[in-house]
């Protein structure tokens, strides 16, 4: 995995909440046994007309978002199916960071991203940034008011800066472990295998209750 420290790119907006992974990559593309080739299939059903031409009505197809690499969207992005293909599709379609708001719902704080999606994103060096609803609203306004608006997501300082006439800076929280992993592009499996001896010891007296089938 490529290390990620700082990324600057054009910002695009997708004004929908609860964007599920079926929408990010429809099921017909899950038949592939490869890890690549998913970029053009991202948001397929929204992005293309039945005849295969781009649908102008879909926000992300707007020419003002040409060359975008940062996506700003609404709450609960990536919900539903665990398919990592959703993250592969976004990354291969050029996205390096996604911003979504956490939200207060009936007195509880609900995160901007679904759990499995967020984990899959980390594994592929895609940065997920959570901000408040008010901040994300402000970003939607900024993007609406500035053609080709660029932003810089800076992981070490945990800041995302929108380069409008006046720079707008938002600070974000990120789990220290996830930050470290992204910064160094660490391979989880190799890391875990350094604990192989401990896994051996754990297994030695751990019961998994596995019976033996007769057939």
């Amino acid at each position: 995995m490529e290390p990620l420290t700082q990324h600057t790119g054009i910002v695009a907006t997708l004004d929908r909440a609860n964007v599920d992974t079926d929408a990010i990559i429809p099921k017909q593309f899950l038949k592939s046994i490869k890890r690549t080739g998913y970029g053009p299939q991202a948001f397929f059903d929204w992005r293309y007309r039945p005849d295969g031409t781009p649908d102008d009505g879909f926000e992300l197809n707007h020419p003002r978002f040409d060359g975008r690499s940062i996506l700003v969207t609404r709450n609960n992005f990536g919900c539903g199916s665990s398919r990592e293909h959703a993250v592969w599709a976004l990354a291969q379609d050029g996205y390096r960071a996604i911003i979504a708001p956490w939200k207060m719902l009936k007195g509880e704080r609900v995160p901007g991203f679904a759990d499995i999606f967020r984990t899959n994103a980390v594994k592929n060096g895609l940065l997920t940034i959570e901000l408040s609803e008010a901040e994300v609203d402000a970003i939607f306004k900024l993007v609406g008011a500035h053609q080709g608006l660029e932003a810089t997501a800076d992981l070490p300082s945990q800041k995302v800066t929108f380069h409008a006439r006046e720079p707008h800076v938002f600070e974000f929280e990120i789990d220290a472990g996830i930050k470290d992993k992204l910064l160094h592009g660490l391979d989880d499996i190799a890391q875990t295998l350094t604990f192989a001896a401990e896994i051996d010891r754990f297994e030695a007296d751990h019961e998994t209750w596995r019976g033996q089938p007769a057939d």
Binding site: E84, D175, T192
Partner: peptide
Amino acid sequence: FGIGTSEVEHVLATQTLRQQKP
């Protein structure tokens, strides 16, 4: 619980997962 494909590989190779406590 459900996991992504990178985690499937992690379990195949190590019989463990790295998890944040929910």
